[in-house]
Amino acid sequence: MAELIYKNPDIYKIPVTLPNNPLKILNSYVIRTPDENLVIDTGFNQPECLEALTAGLKELCIDMDHTTLFLTHLHSDHVGLTNDIITDKTRVLMSDVDYNYLKNEHDGAFWPWMEEKFYHEGLSRDLIELQRKVNPARAFAPKYLFRAETVSDHECFSIGGHILECLWTPGHTPGHMCLYLKKEKILFSGDHILFDITPNITMWRGIDDSLGNYLESLRKIQSLDIHLTLPGHRGNDMDVYERIQQIQQHHDRRIRQTLSIIQKNPGLNACQIGAQMTWSMRGKNWDEFPIQQKWFAIGETISHLDYLIERGEIVRHTDKEIFYYNALVNEI
């Protein structure tokens, strides 16, 4: 059921169920005006998601011929249903950066690179094959590349006279974008800022320092005047500036933990380092992690390793195709 969460402009939230996924819900937002509408994000390419989203759009009497669809980033839980809900007249907006990554994914270049990267970082071929079968990013992606009009940082567009500014916030994905209603001081934060879970920051092809980019993007949002933040998942019952500080502190602790592990145990690969880090998987040790959660954890470990390499704290070297890490200054 769609929930009215703001008046003038009228903003609704449609909760889109994500079956068997720890995120549970995708928040699809709708700005409804007399002449045109905006829909933000879609859900996975799954029947349950499609049913929830289309029911919400029908309840709000949204005509997709007179609607703009804005996609905050390329992950399948945000773009998976694009082909199912747009018409020939729907305007689809997405960052130029993430749209190009999606093109590579559909051209078949992205996933083979990602699998080789994880292999070099210490993940076994057997586990790589296993994740291929269960990774929701692959299983529930759009079946074909949708058409989109790409937008850039600080580009603005209007919905029913309300001006929205596109804000490039790389980190969670290379082209992640937030939307900002400056007059109303409302931020649609996508997965850049979540309130009761920490956004996953992984490495990306062609990006040297995803985590550094993410932390810089947090500072960019921190400088805005924000009255209401609407995240891509779960609730928003906290001051956004306090939440940004919490996320910054979280990554500061994780950076220091990563460095400490390498200083105490030189020559580990990313999987071995990740196994020693602290993760929020209640009652489970590393060996018990489901492969898709282990995949996310290894990706985040690599992003912290890249961050430390960029700042001259550690070095990466290769031995028989596997990458290993050493600190430049060992713990005293």
Score class of each variant (00 low, 15 high):
Y12I: 03
T17A: 05
N20P: 00
P22M: 06
S28Y: 01
I31K: 07
L50Y: 13
E51C: 05
A52L: 03
K58P: 01
E59K: 15
L60S: 11
C61N: 15
T72I: 00
H75G: 00
G80H: 05
M94K: 10
V97T: 09
K103M: 14
H106M: 13
M114C: 09
M114I: 10
K117A: 09
K117G: 00
L130V: 13
P142S: 04
Y144N: 12
Y144Q: 12
S152T: 14
S158H: 06
G161T: 03
H172T: 14
H176S: 10
M177Y: 02
M177C: 12
L181K: 05
F188Q: 00
D196F: 07
I201K: 04
I201F: 02
T202D: 09
D208F: 10
D209N: 15
L224M: 08
H233T: 02
D239C: 12
V240G: 02
D252V: 03
R256Q: 13
Q263V: 00
G274P: 01
M277R: 08
W279M: 00
K284W: 14
D287H: 12
E288C: 10
H304V: 05
D306N: 15
I309V: 15
E310M: 15
D319V: 15
D319Y: 14
A327L: 06
E331T: 12
